[in-house]
Design a protein around this nucleic acid. Structure first.
Lengths: 306, 306
DNA sequence: AGCCTGTATAGGATTTTCCTATACCTTGCT
DNA sequence: AGCAAGGTATAGGAAAATCCTATACAGGCT
């Protein structure tokens, strides 16, 4: 049994107008179109839907009345699906799920999320943290609407929109001999004990800065979390390199650190948005991205100032 | 925006199989059919539903996931409509509304209705009483599924199924001189005061019995209800003619009446079912009619006995 | 009786759907 | 690197569904 929405529409129109001809006028088609559509339904279902009167329209049989009710329900549901579709393209609503590298998420996402949920209270936002590989597969499989990450190892199916450059800087114990300097050469650091943030992208990037200068770092400690790296540095176990701008330089155990820029404008990392090529952002995603761009503007100013 | 159920079905299949090709196999159509159907939805709605991977199927975008959910809902509703249609042709369920002449209804309907609702507790039965004109228009407009009436003035759109013949008989006051007779000639009654049930069909029918015998009745009183006619007769105001077999002959105020058959097998009234020509009875109606036919069988025996 | 109204049918035109063949791109194996 | 395999989109023509005009047909209305 295969009924078309169109056929049902025609039948409902005929039933409600008690006339095939009036239905045809209402639906802007010819009278036989309505007639044959109804005949088709009757044939498919084996129901007698209409009583055909001569020269005075049609009436619904009792089963026709019952069927019309249900058919009408289905049609309004179908209309609702259409409305739902347009709402998906127009309204900031529903849910929003995106992903970020863990280095960036805690710094950038909370303030924007705060602003966003205040403006769009009915939207369910979820931000996940994952490494670049999971980010990419998550974007490709539609798990995330966009990602906050670096332009590294992204496949061609993903578009990248740069947001802001983060130049690397040195984070040292307050007591470090180099802590008072205005800026530091990468070569000066090579011999010093380093605390390395041991994540795939970070590791490669910071290594590359040394390699570009023809030296190698002296990695004394490795750690897998931002908080741990900062704790080690703050307690005098070495320096580290960062690129994400952090608003405080006090470790979780309460020790102060010093920040010194790297000399010679080393290659910065470019933070940006990864999205699926050819897939339009949902209104919610677009709104969030908009706020995010506004928010990172402040870091741009920092950079141009510095 | 005009989406087809078929297109939605194809999209859902593709989304759930994460593959256009697999969907095509599942739906027994070619792969481009699926592809173009989805493309059509995307074009109509402006949504990006799928992420096309090279050589490894497709994924749903976040909006695609949301849309799929709703589309699936709609499709199950559509299937339900189909199931509903077949249930209308197969199951004794829902509601049943029919109509009867008021002379017949209180005698025939209650016992059958009792039996019916006991067997089909979930069916809502309603029996209305109306004159022949309203019965006919009610059948033609689909208000009633069938009617219990006589084969009189029925238009050709209505089919008539005879159930049982009711021969007319005389109802007299117990004290009436003719009350003790075995049978009565119509001519013997002509001069006697008659109480007439003043309803269109009854009136014409009983009159016609006299006219066929070449005499005219002496109508002393007219009444519009069965109970009133019986009351008048029981209290000695005249005789009356009936055709419906009543199981008691005591008026509402407690007076006994006598029943005497008419001699010479006068033309009986034929009780039967009026239904719409070309419209199949619903299962509920068919079941009720079946019980009704069983029930009236007993009157047939009475007739053949008498 | 004859016109009007309204539905069903016939037949051809148009639009939609469908299929085959093919282009195009990536994955994975050699 | 190159080549086969797997998967989607496109092209173009065939098949099917839909639609329209014209007409048959039948009862209501005057």
């Amino acid at each position: 049994m295969q009924l078309t929405l169109k056929q049902l529409r025609y039948f409902v129109a005929a039933g409600e107008n008690a006339s095939v001809t009036k239905a045809a006028q209402a639906m802007f088609v010819s009278q036989p179109s309505i007639s044959s559509a109804i005949l088709h339904i009757e044939e498919q279902t084996g129901l007698d839907l209409l009583i055909r009167h001569h020269a005075q329209g049609v009436s619904l049989t009792p089963t026709g009345q019952r069927f019309l009710l249900k058919a009408k329900q289905l049609l309004t549901e179908a209309d609702n699906l259409g409305k739902f579709a347009t709402s998906l393209t127009e309204d900031v609503s529903g849910s929003l799920r995106f992903v970020s590298l863990p280095t960036l998420a805690p710094v950038l996402v909370p303030p924007v999320m705060h602003q966003f949920v205040e403006r769009h209270r009915d939207v369910q936002v979820q931000c996940e943290e994952a490494d670049q590989e999971k980010i990419i597969s998550g974007l490709l499989t539609g798990r995330f609407e966009f990602a906050l990450t670096y332009d590294i190892k992204l496949p061609p199916e993903l578009d990248f929109t740069p947001l802001v450059d983060f130049p690397p800087y040195v984070l040292l114990p307050q007591t470090h001999p180099l802590a008072a300097r205005d800026e530091l050469q990468i070569q000066e650091l090579a011999a010093e004990p380093m605390v390395l943030l041991d994540w795939p992208l970070s590791r490669d990037y910071f290594y590359s800065l040394f390699l570009a200068a023809g030296v190698e770092p002296n990695v004394a400690y490795r750690a897998k979390s931002l908080a741990m790296v900062r704790g080690l540095v703050a307690n005098g176990l070495g320096y580290t390199l960062f690129n994400t701008p952090l608003a405080n330089h006090i470790s979780l155990d309460g020790n102060q650190m010093a920040v010194v820029p790297l000399a010679g404008s080393p290659r910065p990392t470019c933070l940006g948005l990864a999205t699926l090529h050819g897939v339009r952002a949902t209104p919610a995603a677009a709104a969030f991205i908009d706020m995010l761009q506004q928010h990172v503007g402040q870091f741009d100013q920092h950079n141009t100032e510095g």
